[in-house]
Amino acid sequence: MIYFDQVSKIYNGGSIALDDVTLSIAPKEFISIVGHSGAGKTTLLKMLLAEERPSRGGVFFESTDVHGLPKLGLNNFRRRIGTVFQDFRLLPNKTAYENIAFAMEAAGRSDGEIESDVPHVLDLVDLEDKMWNFPRELSGGERQRVAIARAIVNQPDIVIADEPTGNLDPINTYEVVQILKKINNLGTMVILTTHNKGVIDSVGGRVITMDNGKVVRDDKKGKYAL
């Protein structure tokens, strides 16, 4: 479903963020990407989201080069991906409900669908009672759950979670991991980057280890080795 074909990213200053990465990810897979800071994990995800262009190689989604997509095609492609970030990246002047509704509006969903799906997805992340709160009125764990709800509301093919537990305490970390596992069990591919050994142990899926922009280990049995 996703194929990184000899992808390299070299910035203008000459620093190498990705070095000849070749990787394939199957549908419904849960993969964890681990590595030190600067290993290339986030750059890899940015390549998939077409936020950055590779210096060499290509990124393919269902045989389509995502960097060759026109603007409209790129918007449609991004609607098939849900993203969760360490810093939550919620829209600060929108309530939890509006943040999730915005993702649905962007996907061209009707008002009726929004009114029925947003409360449902907030219920899934156990935040139904906080739907009219602004992000500043929520705890870190609650914000991350809103971000997850936003990521899954359009029933994406892929959920990308970039260090989603980086700013969370152990209890919230556990809850977020459980939600991501539940999403994967429902048939959505999950790509997770993390530093947290406990998270990897808890997930137990395929683990890709990166170092200096290279894939140095691809372990099917979920081991954290840095």
């Binding site: 603007k71 918007n75 991004r78 990246r89 002047n93 915005f102 962007a106």
Partner: peptide
């Protein structure tokens, strides 16, 4: 930052 988030959720 909001604009970049909007782009990421696929808004035109």
């Amino acid at each position: 930052d909001e604009i970049s988030v909007m782009k990421l959720v696929g808004a035109s």
